[in-house]
Write a protein that binds this DNA or RNA. Structure first.
Lengths: 239, 239
DNA sequence: AGCCTCGATTGAGCCACGTCAATAATTTCC
DNA sequence: GGAAATTATTGACGTGGCTCAATCGAGGCT
């Protein structure tokens, strides 16, 4: 919505050699021999907070890797109801297509840097470098498993369980350092609500309830501290 | 639960040459030249209604193609709550793994015939025959798109919209013949409820409401007729 | 046919979460 | 730093779908 076109910071990931998600991303499967081929076909783009990367149904020409920042994937109903189907973080692959159109919309949450590759070039890369297609297949397997897990959450968990599962997932997969029992939540309450199939009010109330029970601390709406991680884990799947 | 080990009908799909889902399944991408290789590594199994094919977390050694019948995929919470993450029909691929274990459980709904292939053999097939891996990649893309659509349904649709969307999906993808405005629902109300994130009572009440409005006819709990398909489509995404 | 079992339907009441509305906190922008 | 805009929290109340419980109906078995 708000264009917020402030001066962008100097991008630091616009080079395969210095890219610090290289080990996580699809590119990890590109061996030294093919690095030049990769460098030749990727380009880079920056996105401001809230900016639309592509919309559901747009003709798909590019696929992306997240270099920096976080992206939300959205699906909409005609009347405006929204489901956030995932949050992507650096190293994640972006660009699922169905019938040569994007199957969901994608929007930058904060500042985002993407590594872009034309689909025709990606296909060539896939046939040229077997490890790359293996990596991509394994990534889409993981994505599918995560989607199934999210269906379980959406269909069968209570609001409290949804929030706790979400927080634990973030901690497990995005925890900054080992032993740091805290996480950042760069997305808004609306995003969290639309991801968990709740309203912002229920999200907010649940955060407050967890804080009052001592399960979490909320020094800031976008930062959560776990004083006792095991207690949180117990709350995840038990009434 | 009930073993129902009655005499099985003579299987009719235990042969690649006479297999009538050949054109839909992964095998469609196997050219004439490799058909012998395929035949050599597939085996077949029959399952009785309700029989477990594998459970979530089982060590994964085989992948499957559905030759006949319908399969439900299930995920469970520790306290028994269940989410059905999908219904698979003839031609569908079965055997998503995460960390060499099945990511969900699979159970036969009615009589089911599966075409089985060891994962090690499947991998060889994938590297030997490029069209097969392409087909598999495109199938998992479709599966992922369907999962996203299901998240939208689970997170944001009303009970009524869920049922109508479900019925229309079945009609679109499994309609028997062109112009036949009716569908079969081989699964129980419990399965439907666990698929849509509802209870059996709500499923039943919603069917009754749709019948009373004239949107559907229910000559039998497992058969639905649409007197006016367009009216049903209107109901899918509008209050 | 008659009994039994299991699945589906229907009813009555309740509650978790949604809605609507006001306030508080945080960020943005000058 | 301060005003305005945006986002988050809190409160009061309503409701869609869940729970608990009874009834109905379709097969299967003898």
């Amino acid at each position: 919505m708000s264009e917020s076109s402030k001066l962008m910071q100097k991008p630091t990931h616009h080079n395969c050699d210095t890219c610090d998600v290289r080990h996580k991303a699809m590119c990890a499967a590109v061996d030294a021999e093919h690095t030049d081929q990769l460098r030749a076909i990727v380009s880079h783009r920056d996105y401001a907070p809230g900016q639309v990367i592509f919309e559901e149904g747009d003709p798909a020409d590019y696929a992306f890797n997240i270099s920096a920042g976080e992206v939300r994937l959205c699906k909409l109903l005609p009347d405006g109801r929204r489901q956030v189907t995932g949050f992507l973080t650096p190293g994640d692959f972006l660009g699922l297509i169905a019938d040569s159109a994007y199957a969901y919309g994608a929007e930058a949450i904060g500042q985002v840097e993407l590594c872009c590759i034309q689909l025709s070039n990606l296909e060539r890369l896939l046939s040229d470098i077997p490890p790359v297609r293996e990596k991509l297949l394994s990534m889409s397997r993981d994505e599918l498993a995560a989607a199934q897990e999210q269906m379980l959450l959406l269909g069968r968990k209570t609001a409290r369980e949804k929030i706790v599962s979400f927080l634990l997932y973030r901690h497990k997969h995005l925890g900054r350092t080992e032993g740091d029992a805290s996480i950042d939540l760069p997305m808004s309450r609306v995003d969290i609500a639309d991801y968990l199939g709740l309203t912002i009010e229920t999200v907010s109330r649940t955060f407050t309830a967890l804080r009052e029970e001592g399960l979490i601390e909320l020094p800031h709406p976008h930062h959560v501290i776990f004083p006792n991680l095991d207690a949180v884990r117990d709350a995840a799947e038990a009434g």
